Computed example of a mutant assay.
Amino acid sequence: MKVSKHNAEHYIWGDICDGWHLVKGENLSIIHERMPINTSEVKHYHQNARQFFFVLSGTATLEVGDKEIVLHQQEGIEVPPLTPHQMFNKSQDEVEFLVISQPNSKGDRIVVD
C-alpha cells in the first residue's frame, strides 16, 4: 500500500507541529514532520536510536552537541545515539523533513535540561 502524509497516522507535537508516521515498526521508524515558522523541538537524546534528518522543503537548523548545522532542502545529517540534539525552524517559511530512526525511538528519548 502506498503511504503519504495524506493517509498516514497523524499526530501533533509541540502544540502546532505535525508528524505523520510513514513507517512505524519496532526496528525502523520514518516520520514526515512539519514545523511552522519560529518553532523548535526540546533538546534531547536517544539511548538506542540512531536518527537521520532529511529536509524536504524549507531550511531547518539542527543543534547537534555544541554545533549548529543549517540544513537546506535536499540535505540531511545523521545523529548517533547518546548525542544531544534539537531541531529549530528559524527561517521565514515552514519546514518539512523526514526523521528516520533505527530502532524506533519511541520511549527512548531523554530530555536534556
Score class of each variant (00 low, 15 high):
44 H>K: 11
48 N>Y: 07
30 I>Y: 02
24 K>I: 10
41 E>G: 09
3 V>Q: 05
18 D>I: 00
110 I>C: 01
34 R>F: 06
106 K>N: 05
29 S>D: 02
99 V>W: 03
59 T>C: 11
50 R>Q: 07
53 F>A: 06
75 E>I: 02
100 I>Y: 03
63 E>I: 12
36 P>E: 05
84 P>E: 03
72 H>G: 14
27 N>W: 00
51 Q>N: 07
9 E>M: 09
30 I>S: 11
44 H>E: 10
16 I>K: 15
89 N>P: 13
63 E>F: 05
29 S>V: 02
79 V>N: 06
24 K>A: 12
48 N>L: 04
69 I>T: 09
80 P>Y: 05
82 L>I: 06
75 E>S: 00
6 H>I: 07
73 Q>M: 13
92 Q>N: 14
17 C>I: 03
43 K>M: 15
76 G>N: 10
102 Q>L: 11
3 V>Y: 08
28 L>I: 12
39 T>W: 00
3 V>E: 01
80 P>K: 08
87 M>I: 15
54 F>Q: 08
20 W>C: 08
61 T>L: 11
38 N>F: 00
59 T>F: 03
102 Q>K: 10
69 I>F: 04
30 I>V: 15
24 K>R: 15
50 R>V: 03
5 K>Q: 07
7 N>I: 04
105 S>A: 13
69 I>W: 00
19 G>R: 02
39 T>I: 06
22 L>S: 12
18 D>E: 15
45 Y>E: 11
70 V>D: 00
15 D>W: 09
14 G>P: 02
70 V>R: 12
56 L>Q: 12
103 P>K: 07
84 P>K: 05
16 I>N: 15
100 I>S: 04
